[in-house]
């Protein structure tokens, strides 16, 4: 049984267009699933729906989100928050805005453990030191007393990774965690996330627009277009031969420095027209 199982999840803007169209996907314990697509395809919305942090303007119009066998959408809000808080965590995109600039690092990691999970302050602090060491931060005790502005982007992202793993979640949603970083730091951070995920056996939902990153850290992926999953495949199968013309075009658009003639091919108009027609047909079939 998959740790996270999303079935036919549909979202829309209140009184507006659909954002997700019957999205189904599974993530097993210890597995990494990539969610890829262009901006606006709905990939971040899936992660937000799972963590119960959808913007107020978005409503769920159908479907189920099973976390650890429990359908989150059937729980009362309070119970749902407790279930998510105890079992899932987020690694956000932008390490600068995710950390409060006026608070020291320490409480930003430990407060959640103390206030929500009921740990003692001493236990939470010991855990924070242990985690910062695990994300390869030298002198964790000193860093816990520092403010976010005193640290580099890479350091801040390490802290958010440590913070995400703090309560030993069974599921982590990583929402474009390296977009704000340069390539050499990105590589360190991705290896760190992959290493921690493997050691802790966490299920990981990895939102990214970079197929290169997917090929390095994920075992499976879902390709989204306009809130619809157009392909669900293992990484090995997908990169050998993508099945959907849109996902094939997305792969062809990804630059490769090893081959100057490859990449930088925009998704052809005909492919866009075909996948839009698919979306339109879907809407027609499901809304009469």
């Amino acid at each position: 049984m998959s740790y996270l199982s999303i079935r036919n999840l549909s979202l829309r803007l209140k009184k507006g267009p659909a954002l997700l169209r019957r999205v189904s996907l599974e993530v097993a314990a210890g597995e990494v699933r990539g969610l890829v697509g262009e901006s606006g395809a709905g990939k971040s919305m899936i992660g937000k729906a799972v963590l119960g942090i959808l913007p107020p303007a978005v409503e769920i119009t159908g479907g189920e989100i099973f976390l650890d066998g429990v359908d989150l959408l059937r729980l009362a809000p309070r119970e749902r928050r407790r279930k998510i808080g105890a079992t899932a965590a987020l690694i956000p995109q932008d390490p600068l805005t995710a950390l409060n600039p006026s608070h020291r690092i320490g409480p930003q990691i430990t407060d959640r453990l103390v206030d929500i999970l009921g740990w003692t302050r001493a236990k939470a602090e010991a855990r924070a030191v242990e985690l910062l060491a695990e994300v390869q931060i030298a002198d964790p005790a000193r860093v816990l007393r520092q403010y976010p502005h005193e640290l580099s982007g890479g350091m801040r992202q390490r802290i958010l990774i440590a913070s995400a793993f703090a309560a030993e979640p069974r599921l982590i949603v990583a929402d474009e965690p390296t977009t704000a970083l340069d390539v050499t730091v990105q590589k360190q951070i991705l290896r760190l996330i992959a290493g921690m995920q493997a050691r802790h056996g966490t299920a990981l939902l990895f939102v990214t627009h970079d197929l290169g990153v997917v090929s390095k850290v994920c075992q499976r992926l879902s390709v989204l277009y306009s809130g619809m999953v157009v392909e669900d495949a293992t990484v090995a199968d997908f990169f050998a031969a993508p099945k959907h013309p849109y996902s094939a075009a997305l792969l062809a658009a990804t630059p490769r420095y090893t081959d100057p003639s490859a990449g930088l091919n925009p998704v052809p108009e005909a492919v866009i027209a075909a996948v839009r027609a698919e979306v339109a047909a879907f809407d027609k079939a499901h809304h009469g």
């Binding site: 050499t184 990105q186 590589k187 290896r191 990169f239 792969l251 490769r256 420095y257 090893t258």
Partner: peptide, 13 residues
């Protein structure tokens, strides 16, 4: 160069 993730799972990092 080595830090760029090529879209190719057969090339490990």
């Amino acid at each position: 160069l080595e830090a760029i993730p090529l879209p190719d799972p057969s090339q490990p990092w």
